[in-house]
Amino acid sequence: MLASGFVLDFLKGPTLALQDFCLLTGRAMRNVTRQPHYSDDIKLQMDSIGVGSIPIVLLTGFFSGAVMALQMGRALQQYGQTGRTGTVVSIILVRELGPVLTSLMVAGRNASGIASELGSMKVTEQIDAMRALGTDPIQKLVTPRMIATGVMLPCLTVIDDFVGMVGGWIIGKLLYDLDALQYWSQTWHALVWSDVAQGLLKPFVYSFVISLIGCFYGLRASGGTQGVGRATTQAMVAASVTILILNLFMGLIFVKYSGT
């Protein structure tokens, strides 16, 4: 009896938080079709989340592609198949590494950024002021961030994939003396539609994880600057872990239903 009470108490916090998160998600989604639309805020967020993340995405893409070509080339060398490096790099980048690494990077940069911005607004009563002055904070703050991330993250992933292939090619050229034409035609032919679908659907789904978790922790912040700091770290950790977990499940689904 006592133990079950304890367990219930222990679960109450996370359950309530999950419920709040679902409510926030529902309201943010519903607002997409509702007036007023804050298009200025959406553009601003696209700029800060999308354009602002390009440098970091270029770097991650290039180096992850390069290091993959390095290791794959060596492994394939044992079977005398160095020539297949392009195929392997392309499939792994587009299906897995591109979406996950881009999303993790953007989570580190923006889930925390969103949480700290909204958190500071929360603890300085700006969120209450917003409500008092006739704006729904979810409509004004959460929905624009959700839309902006949803549009930009798939785009960033495409950039990441491409730059990764370039990185792979440079390593392949320098170390394994791969033929450029062969490499690029392989990367292209290796991909089937389900790979592309998977490679774009994943970041689209993770974009909601990033923006909504960031907003959720930000709007829950309490207790001054320390609370904002806590919200920021929690948002980043929660978003990253959720992305990694979801990634396995989405991978499983695609493997099961696309037959490859």
């Binding site: 300085t124 700006q126 209450d128 002021a129 008092a132």
Partner: peptide, 12 residues
Amino acid sequence: VGMLFQDSALFD
């Protein structure tokens, strides 16, 4: 209704 918040709550 107009409201003045305790810490002003201006949008910074």
